[in-house]
Design a protein around this nucleic acid. Structure first.
Length: 258
DNA sequence: ATGTCCTCTCTTAGAGGA
């Protein structure tokens, strides 16, 4: 079973690219971020025609997350990260697919540092850690997939020294990510490729993709029950080279069937 | 500071976000 996460940067503007990639790779499950679409404008019909049923949590202009499934309807469990009723951003959705709890999340960017957006990111991370710990305690297969807006280590940035005061790399944010992973999650790509330079995002600016000036900020974290089923993982980086493409590339894992 | 690309609107240019 192949499970992917992809920050599409506008699900409607990016629909041709998304459909092309779905047809090419045929992932079983897809977590999408940055829909930038209100719920009523989500391209449900086009995705159904492409063979995918979906649950989604959108909002106008910004954010938005969705989970697609090729072999049935994802069973939505939760929308919105618990812990702050005043947080109205659409950044979190959970669904059960087959035997796995799929969490699709879009962590706040947090820039500029310092400031309220950075504080919001730290708070969001705190709430995520609280909730993720509860999920682990259930001892069921769980996947946390999405755009975490965190480069976990210096290996994950083309020029670490330039990113020290960026909200995607500030030490508080790396620490928060480390604390999350240390609860017992497995970072899929790092597990299989502990020392390889792997990027999932290349800025639109400065010809970043051609220079491979990238970041690794999209992650698939696995609970122990899923981790033991991990077969392979990778980045569909060629998609970043397509016309009218997202600034992220799809990231995927392959699990053994049970 | 800049670069680019998305979405929305006090809309066809500019603002805000990433």
């Amino acid at each position: 079973m192949k499970i992917a996460t992809y920050n599409v940067n506008g699900v409607n503007g990016r629909l041709p690219v998304l459909l092309r990639w779905l047809a090419e790779q045929r992932p079983d499950i897809v977590c999408l971020q940055e829909l930038k679409s209100p719920d009523e404008k989500f391209p449900e019909k086009a995705l159904l025609d492409a063979g995918y049923q979906a649950v989604w949590h959108g909002q106008k202009s910004w954010n938005g997350v969705a989970i697609l499934y090729r072999a049935g309807q994802p069973a939505e469990i939760r929308r919105g990260l618990p812990g702050d009723p005043d947080d109205l951003h659409s950044r979190y959705i959970e669904a059960v697919i087959e035997d796995i709890l799929i969490v699709c999340l879009y962590l706040p960017n947090g820039n500029p540092y310092p400031g309220p957006k950075f504080d919001y990111k730290l708070e969001w991370f705190k709430r995520l850690k609280v909730h993720a710990k509860k999920l682990l305690a259930q001892n069921v297969p769980v996947i946390l997939a999405g755009d975490f807006n965190v480069m976990p280590t210096e290996l994950d940035v083309y020029k670490p020294e330039r990113w020290i005061n960026d909200a995607l790399f500030r030490i508080e944010i790396r620490d928060a990510y480390k604390q999350l992973v240390n609860q017992g999650w497995t970072d899929s790509l790092r597990k299989l490729y502990p020392e390889q330079v792997i990027y999932t995002f290349w800025d639109y600016f400065r010809n970043a993709y051609a220079r491979n000036a990238g970041l690794r900020i999209d992650h698939l974290l696995l609970s122990p029950q899923v981790s033991k089923r991990l077969l392979s993982a990778g980045v569909d980086r060629h998609v970043r080279g397509w016309e009218k493409t997202s600034d992220h590339a799809p990231v995927w894992i392959q699990l053994t069937d049970i």
